[in-house]
Design a protein around this nucleic acid. Sequence first.
DNA 1: GCGTCCAGGTCTACC
DNA 2: GGTAGACCTGGACGC
Length: 317
Amino acid sequence: MNLKEAFTVELEPIPPYSFELTLRKPAGWYWSTPEEIFEKGTCWSVTRFNGELLGLKLHSTGTIQKPQIHCTVYSRTKVDDSSKHAITRMLKRAIKAEEDLTGFYKLSQKDDILQGVVKDLYGMHTIGWPELFPALILAVSLQMAPMKRSNQMMDLLLANFGDQASFDGKTIHYWPSAQTIANAPVEELKDKAKLGYRAKNLKAIATALTQDFPSMDELSAMEPQEAKNKLLTLQGIGEYSAELVMPKTGFPLDVWSAKIFNVLFYGKIPEKPRDAIPALKVAAEQRWGNWRGYAFVYVLNDLPKLSKRIGIDLTKF
DNA sequence: GCGTCCAGGTCTACC
DNA sequence: GGTAGACCTGGACGC
């Protein structure tokens, strides 16, 4: 689908703000879609807003201490003023423009795990999904599967059920809409995206989203616990997935990250990582309080350097 | 080549 | 309220 330039907007995030580290996390996580393009301070990406595909060109014109982002929005149709306003609000939330890291950095000064990671990743902000359904696709794909298989499922969903957006000389694949997955037969999802038992859950989630379910913007405006409870009503979304989608105050431990944090807290890999998760969540909350979600993102995006400092290779788990 | 095992959770049925 | 066991199926691994 060809998109035309609709409007531009200047965003001024709260410093310190690193555009590169925030949009393209060092551990390799994309911001909106795995296919987005990142070149020298410019990110071409795609999202869906009120059912319409939007092309996004985000270009950093500032610095970490005086951040400024020039954003061009591309659309198939004309964008009216009220939609411009809503899209701008969504962008601010998704790039974490209004997230103030001061409290987290203050806390990190007295914390031997965080001291180093905040220096390494100074100005990096946490994860802000532009749209809800793709975040849920990621959560479902990560369940009970090695990374390679999770990536296979996501790649096949993009290729067989996704959409394409062409704008500014770039063509980028984007995630299927909830409507598309809600309409697809479970067998087709199993065959074409190799989702296995997750196919049934993803279709149920997609169906719920096409009915009366809050958007990512609406969830973000809720109290974190209320938003989490809402996500937990979705079939196949448990504690881990809900916190992955709404990382505000969560600590979305899975067996992989449980091993890492167990080593950091207690110096060893737990015998049964899954059983260690509840106690580790309590320990993280006691240690970092409402900043534990930030600690989670910082630590997992700094494993190579953190490993060198502590003398244990955390990148092989 | 072929068989076996299990994965970056969630839900249910049973105590 | 706590806890085994099932769940799809592709890839890794041992033979």
